[in-house]
Simulated assay, not measured.
Amino acid sequence: MNANPRISIVVLTYNRADELMGVLHSLQALPERPEIIVVDNASTDGTAERVRAEHPQVRLVREPTNRGAAGRNSGVAQVRTPYVAFCDDDTWWAPGALARAADLLDAHPRVAALNARVIVEPEGRTDPTCDVMAHSPLDARGLPGPALVGFMAGAVVMRTTAFLEAGGYEPRFFLGAEEALLAFDLQARGWALCYRHDMVTHHHPSPARDLHRRRASLIRNRLWLAWLRLPLAVAWDETRSVLRDARQQGLRREGLRAAMAGLPWVLRQRRVLPPQVVRDWWLVHRGGALAADAPSTPVVAQRQ
């Protein structure tokens, strides 16, 4: 039985059965005793059979194909608690973190997501991204921690209604910057995102990764993200920045070709973000306010 009926965990997995078994063992030992929902992205290594045999208390969702990050949508569709924590098959929550998250979300109804501090194993060091989050330059008045413009997909606790309202993860993105689009859409709806240093999750990066494919997808998705949500001048600036990164990685042609293939869909789905969301994104990613004389729409104004 769920000892804390406020929160569930959705674990996304693909062909990492051995690692997943260890993660599930850790999650089932949590004092919060949350319901655990495993989304198997069409694994071919016997993952589903092992979950059923070794962890029968876990709810299993089997996808017919590998949907990437969008597999999490199927997990959240099964959630019956107001809050949902996310894990990958190489991450697990520390005892007490989920209860703390639920208390904070209870107390701060405009917050949609709390990003945890990620401890990278086996070194036991804090992920550098968390140090950046802890020093966010954004206005955090009235919030339970530093304000963010994004979050880490496998290290976040979210308000279930906010996730569903924003539409979850976009299937076309598969993997790479998928959380950035969801973060944009949450903020466009007035939700806040925060970092909490005292909420801890652990990450032991799996060696079973296709890094080339992940990097190429990230280039494509960053280009899509710019043209899906940013004003024209800002989108052009971001495009130049992404292509510079792609050139340095030897992925410019591959990433640009993949992005162009999805351009008709991107233009159909284009919805420019509210000005304040754009300003906050610029402040975090460019380190300063949008220039008042930049050639853009009225969102390009000095931050007050």
Score class of each variant (00 low, 15 high):
residue 217 S to C: 06
residue 47 T to D: 02
residue 235 A to G: 13
residue 251 L to I: 13
residue 276 Q to I: 10
residue 17 A to E: 02
residue 48 A to F: 09
residue 56 P to F: 01
residue 82 P to Q: 02
residue 7 I to Y: 02
residue 155 A to R: 12
residue 297 T to H: 10
residue 159 R to H: 11
residue 108 H to Y: 15
residue 194 C to P: 06
residue 39 V to H: 10
residue 231 P to V: 08
residue 197 H to A: 11
residue 290 L to Q: 04
residue 122 P to V: 14
residue 186 L to Y: 13
residue 286 R to S: 08
residue 288 G to T: 09
residue 2 N to K: 13
residue 73 N to D: 06
residue 149 V to C: 02
residue 92 W to G: 00
residue 98 L to G: 10
residue 283 L to M: 13
residue 27 L to S: 07
residue 24 L to P: 00
residue 157 V to E: 13
residue 52 R to S: 09
residue 257 R to E: 09
residue 218 L to N: 08
residue 187 Q to D: 12
residue 213 R to V: 07
residue 195 Y to T: 10
residue 57 Q to S: 14
residue 175 L to Y: 12
residue 272 V to Q: 14
residue 122 P to Y: 15
residue 189 R to K: 09
residue 88 D to C: 08
residue 112 A to T: 06
residue 219 I to C: 08
residue 89 D to W: 02
residue 281 W to A: 02
residue 91 T to S: 15
residue 195 Y to G: 06
residue 253 R to M: 11
residue 248 Q to W: 10
residue 94 A to Y: 04
residue 96 G to V: 07
residue 56 P to W: 03
residue 175 L to S: 09
residue 164 L to M: 09
residue 291 A to F: 01
residue 133 M to S: 01
residue 216 A to T: 12
residue 170 E to G: 05
residue 215 R to Y: 12
residue 10 V to G: 04
residue 120 V to R: 13
residue 129 T to K: 11
residue 140 A to T: 06
